[in-house]
Design a protein around this nucleic acid. Structure first.
Lengths: 187, 187
DNA sequence: ACCTGAACACCGTTCAAGT
DNA sequence: ACCTGAACACCGTTCAAGT
């Protein structure tokens, strides 16, 4: 805290600063040079903490938005547990909607596949047979990511003065989620 | 066809060449200079046909993969019509999986929103009330895009020697689609 | 109308050098 | 160990100029 020394540059501070840039200015404006500026350091210093460079930086952003359903608040029916997890995940994705395109890329497989496996385990514990649980996990993850993408686009467009300002996205999301859960309970 | 003149550069040829680069080398390697090379022209010539530059180019790619459910082969139950449309859309998305991240961005709203509206119309004609049809359209579009993203990632990873080579993606996709359709029919 | 050449303000990354 | 300066091979885009 002595004012003559700046905060040490750490992996966590780098990811945080990068997320801040993406949230405020968009993914396209996240450059190593700008990130260095935000950390009050030359861009080249970042490579000392992230040897794989920008690739590793983007992997870190993806990992940061992931939410695991097993660690989400437990209790209640499996439908309600998944509803709680989905609500949290959706919130996170919209808060950092700039990273959404990164989820769609091959990037950081562990983050997405780990979450999918956890969803499958929740469904398995609920009594669904393995193949149904696997399909259900993919369906839920697909819906979650896809709907978040549509919602992020829709919200940004209506903010920019486009049509569709009348859409109640909360209702749309929970409504669609209920459709998927109803279909799942029945299979 | 006189061999001394090369093919004239048109908007369509530019989009085609760009799609070819994205499919073969990935979105990250689509540059104006490389695109110019493919067309046997200087990169700057492209701006004459696409005044908005790379932005307009990427918009064109998104529009190219869109499939409208109203123009898809008609006939039969609405579920079967949507199944046919979804199968076609999925195929297109996987064929050009490099453009998937572009769908997630704000880019070319007309392409995605138009498709969503068409899905809603199909559901509306099928007798669902308006709010249910709207939710259903978003749910289906969300599932389609999200699942395609997961599938593209999954296929690429297992090709690269990762785990999960045992997943039957066709079965996963139709299974998940049936879950959504079953939930919809019941709402 | 259609294309080129040169230029501008950027990128990510490497590498030797400093402390 | 941690950071910097200079350099390299790229980007997208503008603009005047050619035909």
């Amino acid at each position: 805290m002595t004012s003559q020394h700046r905060e040490p540059v750490t992996r966590d501070r780098i990811i945080d600063a990068a997320l801040h840039i993406v949230d405020g200015q968009g993914l396209g404006r996240l450059t190593m040079r700008r990130l260095g500026d935000a950390l009050e350091v030359e861009a080249m210093a970042i490579y000392h903490h992230l040897p794989r460079g920008k690739e590793e930086l983007l992997d870190g952003l993806v990992a940061h938005v992931a939410v695991d359903p097993l660690s989400a608040t437990a209790g209640g029916e499996w439908q309600d547990r998944l509803r709680g997890w989905a609500a949290g995940y959706r919130e996170r994705l919209l808060e950092h909607s700039g990273v959404l395109p990164l989820l769609v890329t091959r990037r950081n497989p562990a983050a997405l596949d780990g979450t999918t496996a956890s969803v499958q385990e929740v469904l398995g514990r609920a009594g669904l047979r393995e193949e149904t649980a696997a399909t259900g996990a993919h369906t839920l993850m697909g819906y979650l990511i896809g709907h978040a993408a549509l919602e992020a686009r829709g919200r940004a467009l209506s903010e920019a003065g486009g049509p569709g300002g009348a859409i109640d996205w909360d209702l749309r999301f929970t409504g669609g989620l209920d459709v998927v859960l109803a279909g799942l309970a029945q299979s």
